[in-house]
Design a protein around this nucleic acid. Structure first.
Length: 432
DNA sequence: TCTGGGGTCCTAGGACCC
DNA sequence: TCTGGGGTCCTAGGACCC
């Protein structure tokens, strides 16, 4: 017998021109004026108002390249204020949570919602979408667009359409759209607009005559998998309304924390780099303590300016493992500076420096202490080493017995991006 | 003169071990 | 000494996202 299953329905709520809109909430006179928000050092545009987008200025355009056109059109430029944006972001999420707890905060200005259970109170998904949009505007002053579909990728696409085409009034629902109409929109949308298709992939797709979203929809997922890998294959299914990417309601713990910044002026001396690395280490250590984490390894990196192609380039990084995971600023700074000394070379003009912290996952809940009683199946050296290190750090407390009578061990597994260090706890079957 | 600062995931190849 | 397969670890790099 066929099981009746409720189709999943996702909504993506995305604030329009987020940073620009935040500034406008507090300075209403900016409404309707062309404006950009600039990155650190006021280097380049990280957010643009609709008026600026209409002028053809792209995200990431360096300020010095747009200065002339800015003067001509009276573009207002603001330095970024991330504290303000973070605060506004939290307010938007609060409003959304009042609609449903089934929510994933995807980025500072976007959230996914599972909405199929909400629909009974509304005449249609679009009706719900409009309500969300109006509520956020009324509560926070921010304009949003809502896209809806049977997968996250379709909700993303719907959101794109809602933003791009005024006839949707900011809300687009793909799930109730007639197929012919959907295919029409897809045929008009470049494949590069699909979530997960960036510039490189788009270029390769175009080379095999896949130009639009509709072309990709019609392509065989098997063929796409062969040529582009499993991520793209999943994307194809998502486009067909087969949801492969679940809502991640619980934000996964971060695997790394980065603190880095470009220099306003190029630096050459070890002393200047040391000061910068020390600052980044202190900042990172603060973030670490803020989320009650410790780090077991640091990566220190320094880079010259890649845009200066006629200058000698030096990109170097070094991983410094720590014998004891810590959040102590002094310990970390000492290690970071020692690492910096190893990679620094005089004669280069450096543009950027930073520190990456590899994070330790939380200690698992201890249920029973059975370590002495068990024998590990398949005694590989790596496993024994991992168990030894767990044992020395936490004592004989990381083995627990399962209901079946077999025991389980927690192994710390190394992470590909945090070499030489272990960041994840995995359950391992062991024999008694 | 002037070009952001965060993140994640996947793949491939070599070293090494059994 | 030679042969081979399979697994893991490590590293580097590419690609994507906001």
């Amino acid at each position: 017998m066929k099981q009746a299953s409720l189709t999943q329905l996702f909504a993506l709520v995305d604030v329009n021109n987020f940073y620009v809109s935040c500034e406008r909430v507090f300075q209403p006179k900016l409404e309707g004026m062309p404006m950009v928000v600039l990155s650190n050092n006021d280097g380049c545009a990280v957010a643009r108002s609709a008026e600026v987008k209409a002028l053809g200025i792209k995200t990431g355009t360096p300020w010095f390249q747009m200065e002339e056109i800015a003067k001509k059109h009276g573009i207002q430029a603001y330095s970024s204020n991330y504290t303000l944006y973070g605060d506004m972001s939290n307010r938007v999420v609060q409003v959304l949570r009042a609609f449903t707890p089934n929510l994933e905060v995807y980025s500072i200005d976007e959230s996914f919602l599972r909405i199929e259970t909400l629909l009974k109170s509304y005449s249609s998904p679009s009706d719900l979408g409009q309500t969300i949009k109006e509520k956020i505007k009324a509560t926070t002053g921010l304009p949003v667009c809502v896209g809806m579909g049977e997968s996250k990728t379709l909700a993303k696409l719907a959101n794109y359409l809602a933003k791009k085409h005024p006839q949707f009034s900011g809300v687009c629902d793909i799930s109730t759209m007639p197929k012919e109409e959907l295919y029409q929109w897809m045929a008009e949308t470049p494949v590069g607009e699909v979530w997960g298709v960036g510039r490189q992939i788009a270029k390769r797709l175009q080379a095999i005559k896949i130009q639009t979203v509709f072309d990709l929809l019609q392509a065989s997922p098997q063929l796409i998998c062969q040529q582009f890998g499993v991520v793209m294959e999943r994307l194809c299914y998502e486009l067909r309304g087969v949801s492969c990417l679940p809502l991640e309601e619980v934000t996964p713990a971060k695997q790394q924390i980065v603190s880095s910044r470009s220099f306003g002026q190029l630096v050459t001396s070890l002393a200047a780099l040391t000061e910068s690395v020390a600052t980044h280490t202190a900042r990172g250590a603060e973030k670490l303590r803020g989320q009650h984490s410790v780090t077991g390894a640091l990566t220190i990196f320094i880079q010259t300016n890649p845009f200066k192609q006629n200058e000698p380039q030096h990109h170097q990084s070094i991983l410094v493992p720590l014998s004891d995971p810590t959040d102590n600023t002094l310990t970390l700074t000492t290690a970071a500076i020692a690492g910096l000394k190893k990679i620094y070379q005089s004669g280069f003009r450096y543009k950027k420096a930073g520190v990456i912290f590899s994070l330790l996952a939380d200690k698992p809940t201890v249920q029973q202490s059975l370590f002495d009683d068990i024998e590990v199946k398949g005694k590989s050296a790596g496993l024994m080493k991992a168990l030894d290190s767990i044992n020395s750090r936490f004592g004989n407390t990381v083995i627990r017995s399962a209901a079946t009578g077999t025991a389980q061990a927690w192994q710390m597994r190394s992470d590909k991006r945090s070499p030489n260090y272990t960041t994840r706890w995995d359950e391992l079957p062991v024999a008694r």
